[in-house]
Amino acid sequence: MGLLQGASELFPVSSLGHAVLVPSLLHWSFRQSDPSFVPFLVMLHLGTAIALLILYRDQWVQIIRAFFAAAIRGQMRDDNERLAMLLLVGTIPAAVLGVFLESRIKALFASPYEAAGFLVLNGLLMLGFEQLRRRREGGASRQEQESRFGQAERISFRAAAIVGACQSLAFLPGISRSGITIGGGLLAGLRHEEAARFSFLLATPVILGAGIVEVPQLFSRGVPVGEYVTAAVLSGVAAYFSARFLLRYFRSGRLDPYGWYCIVAGLASLALLHFNV
């Protein structure tokens, strides 16, 4: 589960959807209704967030310094300061919706059938984002096409808030947080690689915050801590290598293969669940 979560969290294929679907399809003795299931997932998310912090450690140091400098001065003077404020603006809608709605939404849509259905929808969204993007692209080579678009620091504050709010859709199992935010970034005019970077930076505070809040509750419930920590470490390792792969992939790659994967995996899961294979 740790490896699966870590790999699927950053790939635009919905980790939550896979966390609901895979145990059900493989008949693992994993009950999503178990009170320890969500904290277990949060623990895995914490592993992912720490991996992202390690991957972007230098950038986070700059962002945090830039945040305090701009906040105290009341003005943004460089790209790091702008990025710090963009991340704040993008994080707030997701945090507000997460705190007030996350558990209610997850409880409403916790069945494998719904996860499979949303996975298909996620695939369609990925293909839709790329289709809309292609309309704005010119140039023959991928390099030329990408060169028309900008860096994460150039996104507008309104777009950052909208992309941030879209993160909340990932509470629906099957809808990918990174997929939605990368897609939002593409529509806001970012290069693929920059959209992925903005998505990973945007995800880190929310995932880390949720993890830090949930972990003490996890330890107080008498769960097998050693196993959970091992799973979190595996999740982090998988997330680190996934992020590195994706950043390299998105230099020229698109969301389409992940979109098709989600559609096929979602439909196959629906069939397998229906026939109780």
Partner: peptide, 25 residues
């Protein structure tokens, strides 16, 4: 409810930052 408390603390920080940005310099 620490999750809610942290959220509102973050919102407070964001409001103060916004106030500082909005203040004529």
């Amino acid at each position: 409810h620490y999750k809610h408390a942290i959220l509102f603390a973050v919102l407070a920080v964001a409001s103060f930052v916004g106030a500082n940005f909005a203040r004529p310099k």
